[in-house]
Amino acid sequence: MSQNPLLEVRGLKKSFDVTKGFLKKEKHYLYAVNDVSFTLKKGEVLGIVGESGCGKSTLGNLIVHLHEPTAGEILFEGISLLDLPAEQLRRRRADIQIIFQDPFSSLNPRKRVFDIIAEPLRTHLALSKAELKQDVLHLMELVGLNRSYLYRYPHEFSGGQRQRVGIARAIALRPKLIICDEPVSALDVSIQSQILNLLKKLQKELQLTYLFIAHGLPAVKHVSDRIAVMYLGKIVELTTKEKLFMNPMHPYTEGLLSAIPIPDPTERKEQRKLLEGDIPDPVNPPAGCKFHPRCPYKTEICSRIEPEFTEKEVGHFVACHHPLGKENKE
């Protein structure tokens, strides 16, 4: 527990200018990521869940530096990535890789599997032709791709196989951190568990650290150690998987949990607490607690003051004025 975190994110913000028309004086900003802080230890898997549009993908893109943050710091192994000169940042990129959601747009349709997987190797290492081929074949084996697929084009593959190619590309340089940006949500249900198991296996074998982004809790539960729940650009609850599922403190988490379908009807004893309403317009977020218009437990203070993100129990961070205790459950 005492080891230095691999990744530390402090007060990260990203806003997009959504002002329409160039004559308007008043600017409108969409805060996709609004003051997010967390740490990630080596070998850990942190799941990030939230509804569409809550900023979880933007968070992932910020960490791999596909977006420039508006404010905040990203420390990777204690070094601030944002302060690095361009060439050093380019070299550092080998340590942080990303797996994308849509395997149909993440592979260049004009390139063969070999060239796709070899690209990171060619970019950062000087390998001979034979070494390169051997490395690529080894990577294909690791992700469960038949070696005869080496010179095929992406369109010849199914979604699951394409995602395996994407995973091989991401692990090619043995990165320390991989951002999994909803890696299974575009796949058939039957394929999802295969890819999840593959990711889990690779994490163990290669001692990878994952930031695992998903929009539903079930997929995240399978792979994560800790889970962060995001709502409108903010983390509202962050704790271990067990605590989150047994004892959610934020009403939003509770809503997400009760939305998980229970297959066995006899176990559906509890009254479901389904969330009502939609995510508010992120350009004009509600005052106070961002969740209060949908919260069943809201009081007067919730609409005025935004709750602090604090550690309510050991290792259990929540941003809520009225965190749900154990007494509220059961």
Binding site: Q97, S106, P120, H124
Partner: peptide, 25 residues
């Protein structure tokens, strides 16, 4: 598209992205 973002996150140089990823497409 994501494959361009993938190339960027790998650290592929701009010139290479332009001629090896964009140009053939």
């Amino acid at each position: 598209r994501d494959f361009i973002r993938a190339a960027k996150s790998i650290g592929v140089k701009h010139r290479h992205i332009i001629f090896s990823h964009l140009y053939p497409n």
